[in-house]
């Protein structure tokens, strides 16, 4: 099936409806859509954007009135941490033919997913009681329902943990990245409009690891031997040499390609925002296998020294993907 009309055509055909929304995200994914620049005009000419809270004033009740399946594509970014986000995700799922999980937060939980290393109580106590900038003498905490002047005010319920989108609703396609790059966004939208989609559940990005296309790959020695890991700010990193060869932990070997190596181009190692490569569920576990083989240690003392040089290994390996990893969250 082919949707929409080309720019300039005057034929009055109902354009396919598209919704874009942000749940637990920073807005960077919405900005990435805007970064399509002129191509965005082609997109808006081909589709009716019927919901995009960050850009236009639409209300949830507009969505509720639509028929089920009326929206051709819902592009949902951000994770699910509260009841409002869950409600919107489920409403869009009901009204949409296709749901695209857009960006690292929707696909894997993203950076905010690292909150799963803490409990809800830890977070509330820090944010509303213990942080040095907090002044809260009455010890007020946010409540789902509060009576004020005889009226009831409500807030969404804050969940115990962060969820990726597919842990809440059925997802048709995935486009990872923090944020996804314009070329992959354009490809994804075009594929939907032209009806040229891969099997359901596919990730609309390359299958191989970032190292595969990295320009620095040719500088990688045959065997990487790291005695101690360095963080990027601790060395004068060469702009052309493989980070691992410089002793800096780069996650390119266990991260899906497709980002355009924008971090590497700015001399920052890969942090893993594209998630695991095709067929891998837990990028952190796979990184351990690769990292262990690179640690050049001969005895327990050397191993201890190498281990001590790694700051917050769990946070580094699951910077974007803790909620969808095997471990998911901290047990209490």
């Amino acid at each position: 099936m082919k949707y929409g009309t080309k720019r300039g055509e005057t034929e009055m055909v109902a354009k396919p409806k598209v919704a874009i929304t942000w749940l637990g995200g920073c807005g960077g994914c919405d900005e990435a859509v805007v970064d399509l620049n002129e191509a965005l005009l082609d997109v808006t000419n081909a589709v009716d954007v019927i919901f995009w809270p960050v850009a236009l004033d639409f209300k949830y009740h507009h969505l509720e009135k639509m028929a089920d399946g009326d929206i051709v594509l819902s592009i949902i970014n951000g994770n699910v941490r509260n009841s409002e986000q869950e409600e919107v995700a489920k409403l869009l799922r009901k009204k949409s033919k296709l749901v695209l999980s857009f960006g690292a937060c929707a696909c894997f939980g993203g950076t905010p997913g690292m909150a799963n290393f803490r409990t809800k109580d830890d977070i509330f106590n820090w944010v509303y009681r213990d942080a040095p900038t907090v002044v809260n003498p009455q010890g007020n905490y946010p409540q789902v329902k509060t009576k004020v002047d005889g009226k009831e005010l409500t807030l969404p319920a804050f969940y115990e943990q962060v969820f990726a989108l597919n842990q809440i609703i059925d997802v048709d396609y995935y486009l990872p990245g923090c944020p996804p790059p314009p070329d992959l966004i354009a490809n994804a939208v075009t594929a939907v409009l032209e009806g040229k989609l891969p099997p359901k559940g596919s990730t609309l990005a390359p299958h191989k690891a970032l190292c595969d296309s990295c320009k620095r790959n040719k500088t990688k020695p045959q065997r990487i031997a790291i005695k101690e890991l360095k963080r990027i700010h601790e060395i004068e990193a060469s702009p052309d040499t493989c980070f691992l060869a410089q002793g800096v932990l780069c996650l390119g070997m266990a991260t899906r390609d497709g980002c355009g190596a924008v971090c590497i181009e700015t001399n920052i190692p890969c942090r893993g925002c594209f998630g695991p490569v095709e067929g891998v569920k837990d990028a952190g576990a796979k990184t351990i296998a690769a990292l262990a083989s690179m640690l050049d240690v001969q005895n327990d003392d050397e191993m201890k020294k190498a281990m001590d040089s790694i700051d917050d290994l769990a946070g580094y390996l699951y910077r974007f993907s803790l909620p969808t990893s095997s471990l998911k969250k901290r047990r209490t």
């Binding site: 351990i288 262990a292 191993m303 917050d312 471990l327 901290r330 047990r331």
Partner: peptide, 19 residues
């Protein structure tokens, strides 16, 4: 030796997740 290194690294992840 490779397995031992992996286990030591993995123990850090488990610890961070309360295992």
């Amino acid at each position: 030796a490779e397995s031992k290194k992996r286990i030591l690294l993995l123990q850090k992840l488990l610890d961070a997740c309360g295992i």
